[in-house]
């Protein structure tokens, strides 16, 4: 995937670049908003990582101009401003996701992944499937290997989010933000317990596990193709 980083902190940018390259992405870097706007418009990127505070042209304005010119490349804002209001402003300017500094690299990676996949214009889905696990979004039922699985409403939302991002790492913060709509950090990791509960319902009585823990990052639901 081609990623453009617009970030004025050289060192931070080079770390990002290194990390993303090692994860198999092609990375360009612009050091201010003007260069960023120019690069984003002149070549085709899959996702833009934009710092909010940039010299010459700030991140918000840059993305607004980009959107004004009809460029719909997904944008992930990076910012030291982490208030709910700042987040809302970022999303309103045309950003697709918002990450507050300092962040874990795994968090950034997971969110980029989610943005990249979302790029495909989503036709309205009524069914989700991962291996033999099926979810009917209209009837709100879940089946695995044709066996009905009873889920609580919140468990259903949790599984839906995981299945919509099947094959991608989903972090605890992403789950907290998207399934529970909380933007604060609970002191104890409550998400883990919800996951293990869900795992008990969808995986325990079956041969191959679908819901995997990705160490140091989060969770991923995927068909267990290999034995790894």
């Amino acid at each position: 995937m081609r990623i453009l980083i617009v970030e004025d902190d050289q060192e931070a940018a080079s770390f990002l670049r290194k990390g993303l390259s090692e994860s198999g992405h092609v990375v360009d870097h612009a050091k201010d908003g003007m260069d960023g706007l120019h690069l984003a418009e002149s070549s085709d990127y899959d996702v833009l990582i934009v710092d909010r505070m940039l010299p010459r042209l700030d991140g918000l304005t840059m993305v607004e101009q980009l959107r004004g010119n009809g460029n719909e490349t997904p944008v992930l804002f990076l910012s030291a401003l982490g208030e709910v209001d700042d987040r809302v402003m970022g999303l309103r300017a045309g950003g697709d996701d918002y990450l507050t500094k300092p962040f874990a690299f795994s968090e950034l990676l997971a969110r980029l992944e989610a943005l990249l996949r979302r790029k495909a214009p989503g036709q309205v889905q009524t069914r989700l499937q991962v291996d033999d696990l099926e979810m009917d979004l209209l009837q709100r039922t879940v089946k695995r290997a044709d066996q009905m699985i009873e889920l609580q409403p919140r468990e259903f939302l949790l599984l839906e989010y995981l299945m919509r991002h099947a094959g991608q790492v989903v972090t605890r913060t992403m789950l907290l933000e998207n399934v529970w709509e909380y933007h604060f950090d609970p002191q104890t990791n409550v998400i883990d317990v919800h996951i293990s509960r869900l795992r008990a319902k969808i995986d325990r009585d079956f041969q191959s596990p679908l819901l995997h823990t990705v160490r140091g990052a989060g969770y991923m639901i995927r068909a267990d193709t290999s034995a790894s």
């Binding site: 208030e83 709910v84 529970w180 909380y182 317990v193 293990s196």
Partner: peptide, 28 residues
Amino acid sequence: TSSQKMVLLDPAEIVQDIADLYEPLCEE
């Protein structure tokens, strides 16, 4: 100076949501 907006709300929903969030932890 927090820009957090205050609205009129029924706290029952908030309480229920947080209780649901922590319920599995209690059980564990």
